[in-house]
Design a binder for these strands. Sequence first.
DNA 1: GAGTGGTCTAGACCACGGA
DNA 2: CCGTGGTCTAGACCACTCT
Lengths: 232, 232
Amino acid sequence: MTSQRASFRTIRDELSRRIAERIWLPGTLIPGEEALAEEFGAARATVNRALQELARAGILERKRRAGTRVALHPVREARFVIPRIRQEIEGRGSEYQYRLLSAEETDAPEVICARLSLLSKSGMLHVRCLHLADRVPYQYEDRWINLNTVPDARRADFKSMGPNEWLVGHAPFSNAEFTFMAGSASADEASLLQVREGDPVFIGERITWMKGQPITLAHLVHPSSHRMVTHL
Amino acid sequence: MTSQRASFRTIRDELSRRIAERIWLPGTLIPGEEALAEEFGAARATVNRALQELARAGILERKRRAGTRVALHPVREARFVIPRIRQEIEGRGSEYQYRLLSAEETDAPEVICARLSLLSKSGMLHVRCLHLADRVPYQYEDRWINLNTVPDARRADFKSMGPNEWLVGHAPFSNAEFTFMAGSASADEASLLQVREGDPVFIGERITWMKGQPITLAHLVHPSSHRMVTHL
DNA sequence: GAGTGGTCTAGACCACGGA
DNA sequence: CCGTGGTCTAGACCACTCT
């Protein structure tokens, strides 16, 4: 018996409760949309929306003809926000500062070409900069921008605005890959981040594409005090 | 002119295209649902679904009365799968091995209590184990389980099954926090992971709750060769 | 108050894929 | 084949919020 008026939210939460409280065990075939619609006194479309949300969250598995089952091996996903460095820092109430270290058009080394699946190593813009929070080094950014895809970047002024900030405003991406890892600070990175050489660093790498054309590869290095936190 | 038959997918993609190709610039107020429905020859509900998906993805911002705008500061999110270690390793075609190092009921140290907001330090199960891929250390797991929330864990046998595997089957969580960071291998961790003491390690920490009750805190340490990858 | 998005309904047809 | 989920429609009412 559910006293609440029908709504995809209440239905979703009630079904979610039945799964969490193990009334429906993993692997159980749950009633069809029609049956649930009748039970909750709702339209099938409403039940459908509730079920789709749970399926998207990974706690239900739906197949035509076979029906809907409680996921046996819930492949749960979490989300993390793709931070824009200025917002990230200012959002915590810290003062954001930016320092351009270098920006030059040059040939890309082998590693970079390979990482971006580039045929030609020319027409690349190499930008290095530092982001600070409350005057303390927060992130060192080493970025390659593909001028063949984003020719406008040649005229961009990275003295006052970080390349990420410029890119979100001028070159939207359709596709991205994020990699996170741990590494050791090189001599350069150490002096910029004010840590000792060889100290652990948290590294994020992003590659973005627009319709299959690589836009940019960003190598983002944080001191080991950095935390990347997300909730589910 | 859109030649495709109306469907929330085609509408979504077409709107997405207009934004990506800067036909609608960030901040633009786009036509209302009714108008779009007419343009695409679809019902308003169909347009609504397309718009909702784009809003959820962060590229549109919708407000009642104010209409729908192209997001100025697209707060984009990416998803990552919460891996179950066995699947993660076997999914790459590697052989999974598991080794229990210790499991004992003991008082939790201050740090752990604080992290879990626990009032009492008793009734905690401390489990340490190692996960290997192709006989190479892959992850060292140091976990605290709250027996007050999950009393059944006392009778669990962690000799053949990792605590994560046991928990997903016996104690679903309603809420979780994930933290990722870089650190240095302690002497213990170094010998277990077969790296040198002080070498960088990639650390993941998860805390899970069931209805506000803390279930477990897992501290997961990977050698620095580890990569966490996700796409958008 | 009024305009916009948010949700629900009843009915319909379609597509997939298991039996 | 045919039952199940996937999607669409036309219409309706509601909720929020800007003016």
